[in-house]
Write a protein that binds this DNA or RNA. Structure first.
Length: 367
DNA sequence: TATGCGTGGAT
DNA sequence: TATCCAAGCAT
């Protein structure tokens, strides 16, 4: 296979089939002289880490509206950033996003570094994001390797080495294939190809611009690539959470620690999450004495464990001021930095806590 | 290198 | 229902 020819076929396909995305400068726009904004590209790439385009779109628009330039984000209140990120997941990204904006403002005069090396030195920017921003925003010949490109490349070359061991080899093959002209479109084209044609299941090989180049299609079953190491099974963890309602309907909330699971986010009080139920833990975890009554359980699936939370609720006549928490009015609950699992817990105890609208919590309320 | 880190949609 | 997995990063 001639890499250069394959790259030309890929770019030609991208010209005809690219998707219009809010952060993307499509080939027709580029023809009209539009250039990519590094801030937009960086923000979208961080949001897109392990996250679908559909989930990112509304968050991207909201962030641009709240903080139009990187200097605005650098000057923002971290708590406001966490609130705006709530629901998108992987909250370390939000903490690093803020740190990165501050570093760009403080160390680079508000201008993003235009090299892979400079970008990778910033918080929350790794191999992939550095290469993507470098190629897409600065037109540099960087080898962009994400999950989509791994799938495309592993099939093109029928790579038998399983991930993640095969990454270095794959990166070299992408570097060899990346053209000097339009490296950003090439990267986006490869990712679009992986997202729409060279899919994990039932790839549409008949429509693929690279089907003549694809070794897996010639000699094996493309769907079986990339090879991957077997994964571990998900353990179950259990715990309890306490939802206290004040006389005016306010809910007692507190802030989690800055690091680790759901770091920097808001929660209702509860026990640690352990492998077995511990009655002593449950008693000790009450934020204050109240007539707690059980009101069912909720289940939430995290990346590496399944959580089953027993929910307790109580109405409190006098709003206790002890502890590190605060009483949040019902009306402003939606705007807090509450991860989805905590919204589920509150909705279990107070079914009308969140406005009824299309969203993940609707299904929960109906069960 | 292996593990911890969210969430929701597709199959 | 169960499983996979989506434009990864930090440690």
């Amino acid at each position: 296979m001639k890499s250069a020819d394959a790259a030309i076929r890929l770019l030609s396909w991208y010209d005809r089939h690219h998707r219009d995305l809010p952060w993307r400068v499509s080939p027709p726009m580029a023809r009209d002289g539009v250039v990519a904004d590094p801030y937009h590209i960086w923000l979208s790439e961080v949001m897109l880490q392990q996250t679908t385009v559909q989930a990112v779109k509304p968050y991207f628009q909201k962030f641009l509206q709240l903080w139009p330039r990187v200097m605005d984000l650098a000057a923002a209140d971290t708590e406001e950033v966490m609130k705006a990120w709530a629901g998108l997941g992987y909250y370390a990204r939000a903490r690093n996003l803020k740190k990165c904006a501050e570093a760009v403002a403080r160390d680079h005069g508000g201008v993003f570094p235009d090299t892979e090396e400079g970008l990778k030195a910033l918080p929350g920017i790794g191999d992939y994001t550095a290469a993507a921003v470098s190629a897409i925003a600065f037109n540099r010949q960087s080898a962009v390797l994400d999950g989509n490109v791994e799938r495309v490349i592993s099939r093109l070359h029928a790579i038998e080495t399983p991930l993640p061991a095969a990454k270095l080899q794959m990166r070299a093959l992408v570097a060899e294939m990346t053209p000097t002209g339009r490296p950003g479109d090439f990267a986006q084209g490869m990712m679009d190809l992986g997202a729409t044609i060279c899919t994990p299941k039932r790839p549409a090989c008949a429509l693929c611009p690279l089907n003549d180049d694809c070794l897996a299609l010639k000699t094996a079953d493309p769907e079986t690539f990339p090879r991957k190491a077997a994964k571990k099974e998900k353990p179950l963890r259990v715990g309890a959470a306490f939802v206290a309602s004040g006389a005016d309907g306010a809910v007692y909330l507190q802030k989690r620690g800055e690091t680790g699971l759901l770091g920097g986010m808001t929660e209702v009080p509860g026990t640690p999450w352990t492998s077995r139920i511990d009655g002593d833990n449950t008693i000790a975890a009450q934020p204050f004495a109240a007539p707690w009554e059980p009101c069912g359980t909720i289940t939430h699936i995290f990346t590496h464990f399944e959580l089953r939370l027993s929910i307790y609720r109580a109405n409190v006549a006098t709003q206790n001021k002890t502890g590190n928490g605060w009483w949040e009015p019902l009306a402003s609950l939606e705007a807090q930095a509450l991860p989805t699992v905590m919204k589920k817990a509150i909705a279990q105890a107070i079914p009308h806590a969140f406005k009824s609208r299309r969203g993940p919590l609707d299904e929960l309320r109906n069960t």
